[in-house]
Structures are given as structure tokens and as C-alpha cells.
């Protein structure tokens, strides 16, 4: 299984350079980051780009930065770095949970958060996590400049996003949050250890000084058409202290409400079982982190 012929290959060093290359290469061009999804697709000839613009030499697309308005994760940051960085604490711990369980070591050495978002495969982790954490994505193109897109508008369907073909994802911004009293977590069930998620759950919980829940977010991946938030969890938890019973109730509400699909990996019913059980555990973990427990 080999890629179809490729006519042009560019390895720009800057964002501007990458956008220039894109303009020069024209319509059948694709960006390539870690290649962990695109190379699969190219070898199966599901993707047949005429030109490739390799982002791996663009240093400014990589790394994390903390500012007053929150944390910026650049799209080329690899899972390996996300798994070990100390910059993602508090509200952003779910990113580390996900990054450290994606695929395997070699995949984590190469794969990037931006690539995962732009690919938006059903069985993936980062779109789900970023949805839970209210990320805003910055897309840049030569013609239209930059625009910010909230993650819920970005994720559209299987292998489909709001990104236009000529747009480069340049930033993933997470809103500022308090340092204490907030925690997030992510877990998935993939059949095999670290396998692609049949269901993945991300959750964030914020508590006040008295331990009452002031924010609760919950999102589910592994379901069609794309990762989805379930706000009913907030309804079940807000203003309450986090108890095991409350987490069970909230996760069950999510399982009941969210439509799931049947495929050869799991039935719609079993996906609901996973949402309920994983959901409860992830809520408990996010809560424990929020309360320093």
C-alpha cells in the first residue's frame, strides 16, 4: 500500500512560508503534520494530494504559551510533549490524560494535537477533549488572514471541520481559568490498551470554596457524527457537592440523552453503558482534581 504519486513537496520554515506554499501549490495540496492519519489515508489512497506542505519544520507552530487570556497550544505540539508538560494543570489536565494514551509511543512521538483536530476522526481523543475545554481555534489563510473559530463550530462531522482547505490551524486557545478549584480528566475505552476510543469521555468540574460545583462540562467522543457536549451534566451537578451518587446520576443522564451508533466494535447500547460508567469515573476524577483530592 503506497501513496499515489505526489508532484510537489514543500518544507517551509514559517507560518507565512507555509501559507505561501499553499497558495503556490494550489488546490490539491495538503498540509502534513505528524502524518499519523494522513499517511494512513494516503497509503490506502483515500487521500491523494498532488502536493504536500510539510509543517514539521515550522518551529513557530510548535509549543505552549501561557498568557493572561489563557493557554495557547500550538498545533504542531506532539502528544509526547503534551503528555509530560507541566504547563497543563488545573482545567487542562484532560489534555495530558488523552495525550498519554493516544495509540502508542511511536504515534505519540509523531502525532500532533492540531493534526488530530483537523482530521476529526470519529474515534479520536483531542477533538473531544478540546470540545470539553472550550477551545477556540485560530485559522490563518493568505487571502483572508486569521479567524477564530470556537471548537463546537469547528467540529462538523466525520473527517469534516470548518477549516477551509487553504487554512492553516495556527493556535488552539484555552480560556483562562482559576488555578485551584478546577480539574478536568479524560478516559477512553478502546478494547485494547490505548486503542482508538470506542467511547472517550472528557469532563471538567469547577467548585467554589465550599465545595459546591460551579461549572461542570462533559463531552463524549467515539460517537457519530462527531464529539458532542452534554449540558445536562451541568444541570445535574451545579450547586451540588460532588458525590458518587451525583456523578452516577449525571453520567446516566448523559448516557440516556446521547444518541449512539452500532458498528462492528460496539452496539449503540454498549456505547451507552460506556458513557455511563466511564462518565461517572471521569467526573469523579475531575472532581477529585478540582478539590485537590
Amino acid at each position: 500500500m503506497y501513496p499515489a504519486p505526489i508532484e510537489a513537496y514543500f518544507a517551509p520554515r514559517t507560518i507565512d512560508g507555509a501559507l505561501q506554499c499553499r497558495a503556490e501549490a494550489g488546490d490539491d495540496a495538503m498540509f502534513i503534520a505528524g502524518g499519523m492519519s494522513l499517511m494512513q489515508a494516503m497509503k490506502a489512497r483515500l487521500a491523494t494530494p498532488r502536493a504536500l506542505i510539510d509543517l514539521n519544520e515550522v518551529e513557530e507552530l510548535s509549543g505552549l504559551a501561557k498568557g493572561p487570556r489563557g493557554v495557547t497550544v500550538r498545533p504542531l505540539t506532539r502528544y509526547r510533549e503534551l503528555a509530560v508538560t507541566t504547563a497543563l494543570h488545573g482545567a487542562l489536565q484532560a489534555i495530558g490524560d488523552a495525550a498519554s494514551t493516544v495509540g502508542d509511543r511511536q504515534v505519540r512521538n509523531a502525532g500532533t494535537i492540531g493534526g488530530s483536530l483537523c482530521w476529526n476522526y470519529v474515534a479520536s481523543c483531542m477533538p473531544n477533549v478540546c470540545l470539553c475545554l472550550d477551545a477556540t481555534l485560530v485559522l490563518a489563510s493568505l487571502e483572508r488572514g486569521e479567524r477564530g473559530v470556537p471548537i463546537n463550530e469547528f467540529l462538523i462531522g466525520p473527517l469534516e471541520t470548518a477549516r477551509r482547505d487553504d487554512e492553516l490551524l495556527v493556535e488552539i486557545n484555552f480560556p483562562a481559568s482559576k488555578v485551584y478549584g478546577v480539574g478536568s480528566a479524560y478516559r477512553k475505552y478502546g478494547g485494547t490498551v490505548d486503542g482508538l476510543p470506542i467511547v472517550g469521555i472528557a469532563a471538567l468540574i469547577e467548585v467554589d470554596e465550599t465545595g459546591l460545583c460551579t461549572d461542570a462540562r462533559f463531552s463524549v467522543g467515539g460517537i457519530l457524527p462527531t464529539a458532542r457536549r452534554f449540558d445536562g451534566v451541568g444541570d445535574a451537578l451545579l450547586g451540588r457537592s460532588g458525590t458518587p451518587a451525583a456523578f452516577v446520576e449525571a453520567a446516566s443522564a448523559a448516557a440516556d440523552a446521547i444518541e449512539t451508533q452500532t458498528d462492528h466494535l460496539a452496539s449503540a447500547h454498549y456505547r451507552k453503558v460506556l458513557i455511563r460508567t466511564l462518565g461517572r469515573d471521569v467526573l469523579a476524577e475531575a472532581h477529585a482534581r478540582a478539590t485537590g483530592g
Binding site: 502524518g35 514539521n56 511511536q106
Partner: peptide, 15 residues
């Protein structure tokens, strides 16, 4: 120095 699956890269990327 990092482990990578070499079937998931193009040769030109290793230039």
C-alpha cells in the same frame, strides 16, 4: 533519537 514508524513517513521528510 526518537522512535518513529518509518512506514508512516516519506523519505523526503527525513532530508
Amino acid at each position: 533519537g526518537r522512535a518513529h514508524k518509518s512506514c508512516m513517513k516519506l523519505a523526503v521528510q527525513a532530508d
